Amino acid sequence: MLSKLTFATLALAGAASAAVSNGGLKILAPGGDGLWWIAAQQNNVVWTCGESTFPQFTILINNSDTSLLTAITPLIAVEQNYNCNQGIASNLITQPVGTGYTIVLADILNSTNIYAVSDPFEIKALSAGYPPTSNTPVDQASATVSKGTSSNVVGQTGSPTGAGSGSPPAKTGGAPSLRSSSITAGALVGVAAAVAALL
Rank of each mutant, 00 (worst) to 15 (best):
S3R: 10
K4A: 15
F7G: 06
F7S: 11
F7M: 13
F7K: 12
A8P: 00
T9K: 13
G14A: 09
G14Q: 06
A15G: 10
A19P: 02
N22T: 13
K26P: 01
G32E: 00
G32P: 00
D33S: 15
G34Q: 14
L35E: 00
A39V: 14
Q42I: 15
Q42F: 13
N43E: 13
N43V: 12
V46Q: 09
V46D: 03
C49H: 01
G50W: 01
P55D: 01
P55G: 02
Q56W: 02
T58R: 03
T58S: 13
T58A: 12
L60I: 01
S64R: 10
T66H: 13
L68A: 01
I72A: 14
I72P: 00
I72F: 07
T73W: 11
T73R: 14
P74R: 01
N85V: 04
Q86I: 09
G87I: 07
G87Q: 06
I93Q: 10
T94H: 07
P96Q: 03
V97D: 02
G98A: 05
L105V: 04
D107I: 05
D107H: 11
I108V: 15
N113S: 15
S118A: 11
D119H: 14
Y130N: 06
P131Q: 06
S134F: 10
N135G: 05
P137E: 07
V138D: 05
T144R: 13
S146M: 13
K147Q: 14
N152S: 07
V154K: 03
V154T: 04
T157D: 05
S159E: 07
P160W: 11
P160T: 12
P160Y: 10
G162L: 04
S165N: 14
G166C: 07
K171W: 05
T172R: 14
A175M: 09
P176F: 01
L178K: 06
S182L: 11
T184S: 11
A185V: 07
A192W: 09
A197Y: 11
L198S: 09
